[in-house]
């Protein structure tokens, strides 16, 4: 066991993993955070806790991860390279581990121009792949990035993100390979809508032996409306939403569009469950946490295994 986290144990036991996501509040509204977490409790194996997502300041991800832990949901502590240099990152990794956080997801982070402080100096001292290598070195070699020794190494199950849909498509699988060789134990992908491309990418990962080295969790975000689908299609860089999805949502009619979105998500989950090389699902129900129990139920993800 690398960290002994529940997520690691689930994957090691060969269960199909199911993770969710919680966005911390823009303030100290712990009640709102607890409310979001309550919907995930018992329905996911771990919940990603986002780190100033979309470059907007929020309650810090390690603090929200602690609240998550106290509320009985295992956190997957997200860390971006935008806001901290290597000293602050390593300090927070030690702190998180000391408090019992056992999973983390290493990300570059959205550029600060998108957020609420576009004038901020982006740190980007290291990139996401270098961060993965740093965490692995801390955990496995008890060594800081500088090489200096650590007095009791942090225990972390190390995650990385992958976007199978961004160009150049041919390079994506090699970048995934780099992330895995840098230290990723599990991968969570960008939201999948183009199943053809996702199939092709998973096949490439299998062919290169990557799915034996790291666990692939495919990203799913149910569409709530045609507007959301259009926005994802045209405004979110690196996101691919096929016209067929939009057509399906539109044809469902205004009353049933959210239902249709959940239906699509469940179909995708079903297909991934049977796809060789896929180890789980990462459900990003953005500001829709209260629908997670229903989606989990309908997708056949319940009950979650006890390990």
């Amino acid at each position: 066991m690398k960290s002994g986290s529940k997520l690691e144990r689930i994957l090691q036991a060969g269960h199909f993993a199911f993770t969710g996501e919680v966005g911390p509040p823009r303030g100290c509204n712990v009640q709102a955070l607890k409310e979001k977490i309550s919907h995930l409790k018992g329905h996911v194996d771990a919940a990603n806790v986002t780190d100033n997502q979309t470059a907007v300041v929020r309650l810090s991800s390690w603090a929200a991860s602690l609240i998550c832990l106290q509320e009985g949901v295992e956190p997957n502590f997200q860390m971006v390279c935008r806001d901290r240099n290597r000293l602050a990152m390593q300090a927070d990794i030690l702190g998180a581990s000391a408090h019992g956080i056992r999973n983390m997801l290493c990300l570059s982070g959205d550029h600060q121009v998108f957020g609420d402080h576009p004038q901020a100096k982006g740190v980007f001292d290291i990139d996401s792949i270098q961060l993965l290598a740093m965490v692995k070195g801390m955990r496995d070699d008890s060594a800081f990035q500088s090489g200096g020794g650590i007095d009791e190494a942090p225990k972390m199950f190390i995650g990385a993100a992958a976007n199978p849909f961004a160009e150049p498509f041919e390079w994506r699988i090699h970048r995934l390979a780099k992330k895995i060789s840098a230290g990723a134990d599990f991968i969570q992908t960008q939201c999948v809508y183009n199943m053809d491309k996702a199939r092709e990418w998973v096949k490439q990962a299998n062919d290169l032996g990557l799915t034996e080295k790291a666990s692939l969790l495919m990203g799913i975000t149910p569409m709530k409306s045609v507007g959301m689908a259009r926005y994802m299609q045209s405004k979110v860089p690196g996101m691919e939403v096929p016209e067929a999805i939009i057509r399906r949502l539109r044809e469902a009619g205004k009353q049933n569009v959210a239902e249709e979105g959940i239906k699509i998500a469940c179909e995708q989950i079903q297909e991934f469950k049977e796809m060789p090389g896929v180890a789980g699902i990462h459900l990003m129900a953005i500001e829709w946490e209260h629908r997670v129990p229903e989606i989990a139920e309908r997708a056949g993800m319940l009950p979650r295994p006890e390990v």
Partner: peptide, 20 residues
């Protein structure tokens, strides 16, 4: 690279342009 990545491109690349 707007993020100064040493191991890119990130997932935000927008076909051939930068996400920013």
């Amino acid at each position: 690279c707007a993020k100064g990545l040493f191991n890119g491109p990130c997932g935000g690349t927008n076909i051939t342009s930068c996400e920013i």
